[in-house]
Design a protein around this nucleic acid. Sequence first.
DNA 1: GTTTCATGTAACTTTAAATAGTGCGTGAAA
DNA 2: TTTCACGCACTATTTAAAGTTACATGAAAC
Lengths: 154, 154
Amino acid sequence: MKRDSRLSGVLHVLLHMAEQGEPMTSEQLAKAMQTHPVVIRRILGGLRDAGFVHSEKGHGGGWTIAKDLADITMRDVYDAIGRPSLMAMGNRTEAPGCLVEQAVNAALDTGFREAEALLLARFGEVTLAALAADFHARMAARSLSPTAQEHIHG
Amino acid sequence: MKRDSRLSGVLHVLLHMAEQGEPMTSEQLAKAMQTHPVVIRRILGGLRDAGFVHSEKGHGGGWTIAKDLADITMRDVYDAIGRPSLMAMGNRTEAPGCLVEQAVNAALDTGFREAEALLLARFGEVTLAALAADFHARMAARSLSPTAQEHIHG
DNA sequence: GTTTCATGTAACTTTAAATAGTGCGTGAAA
DNA sequence: TTTCACGCACTATTTAAAGTTACATGAAAC
């Protein structure tokens, strides 16, 4: 399957915005993420509607964080991008008439629901502030290391 | 993403084989699952290599279960088909140089690993015998119901 | 006010992975 | 020796994500 990387991508973008402090354009963010500006606008669209980011048109415009990083969890972000399916596997047929398949689906669904619930709970425990703190810790570790590199993207 | 239904499919096939008692050809199984015989051979190939089913060529040939249903778990079946990825979401980039992305990936991976572990543990708890029992319970329930239908596949 | 910059959005195209299908080879039973 | 059924390599189709193009809207600069 082709794995969905929108959540990973949007978290990445949000942290870069937070680091910057001032408005960043879709083009700047796209360059940082090695993707297309329209892709950025698309994935940030849901975040804007949810009130997590703000966008401004025209000169000096761009994207800014609209909330404190400590008040945004990965779960919030996941919800804002439309709750894409988390499980790579599904049932062959939904609502099958075959009783064998119903039994199989029931067993699989039970496991999938539990795993999803666990994952969402974990997402709810991690704020963007925590991610930013982790990033800063990595920065500090890298600058201390003898093989420290100057660039942030590579 | 296109969700993988091989596990669902192979479990379905195995239970039908178990119900039948005698060898079933790929064509019969394909008809029951509304798919192509080659697809059946493909998904059963791993199960044969793992020793869970046996295949016989020529007249009277076909597929049979090679172990007691109580000795095969959904986890076994999952392993036998090659442990396809369970999570629909992944990281934008593996081994990124960007420290922001490293922080994001680390947080996401932690959640994914926990969810996968839970799911696999649940799979390990469910035997094919349990699935067959569930199927028989559904059969009984249907035959008692006023809107009982004769067909098994629909 | 008009030019420039930047987002908003609706298409369309490309790409990756699952699934479906074809053809031919092999081996066993009738 | 014919028929049946699996084994396997290869190709085709399908689906959803990701990338791209095109154009409209609105705000700041001049």
